[in-house]
Amino acid sequence: MKQSKINTNQLRAVLTKQERPEPPNPLYAITTFSWRALLKIKRHPEQLLDVAALPILFLLMFTYLFGGAIAGSSREYLQFILPGILVQTVTQITMYTGMDLNKDIQKGFFDRLRTLPIWLPSSLLGSLLVDSFRYLIASTVMVSFSLLLGFRPQGGVVGVISAIALILVFCFSLSWVWNTLALLMRSEQSLMMLSMMVIFPLTFLSSAFVDPTTMPTFLENVVKYNPVSILVDAVRGLMHGNVELANIGLVFLSSVIIIIIFAPLTLFLYRRRK
């Protein structure tokens, strides 16, 4: 291999250039961070496996494993379960947002960011933008595959598209929860553990898989006020064409509440970090 050498003369010339541009505007910084996230996907396309293969696996498992037992026939169960699994899978993927941030902190990349003249949230927003794209892929893969399996949404194309849009809105808000946790936990493992402890009750204690009215009263109440249930009900309604507007409103409300709590908390921790 050729020996790489420092080119001293050129180095001097490069160092005496005193160009100092104006700090970037937030939009430019956000696009730059999105570019970084896209590069990472390009380098590691296998990362997309979790958004493409995992949903299919879940769908097959639930439909054929539980379908007969819970709803009598798997085809009938698919109509009920698809919105639930879709919500569950996509909300679970949001967890990775926190992992990426945590890795940046552990690896020291974060320290460099903090010395740059950027609007700090732009780094989070930039990766959230690309993450939303991943959620979109996951949703599309899952819906397309379920159509093959016999899913027949009464809400039509419009219903399905608005349902997916609603999921993206909710996931965006949920990402702030992971960012907060990522800033609180020291290691990736502990973050993973904590995230699991949040996501599993959140997605399983919901109306995703079974009708809450079949549950004991205490559990029924927990499930009823779980924001994931609210989302599942709205998505189910949109896809089957019998949605109540109030339900959609509730999804927006819970998203806004989550953002109001966790976005400022994230930014506070982000700035304060020792």
Binding site: E22, P23, A29, R36, L39, K107, G108, R112
Partner: peptide, 25 residues
């Protein structure tokens, strides 16, 4: 810093472009 604060998954060139853009270039 004492430990490299660069993004391992990116190339050397991409790392520098990233930081340069974030500085406003």
């Amino acid at each position: 810093g004492q430990y490299a604060s660069i993004d391992e998954a990116l190339t050397g060139q991409e790392n520098l472009i990233l930081i340069a853009r974030l500085l406003g270039f």
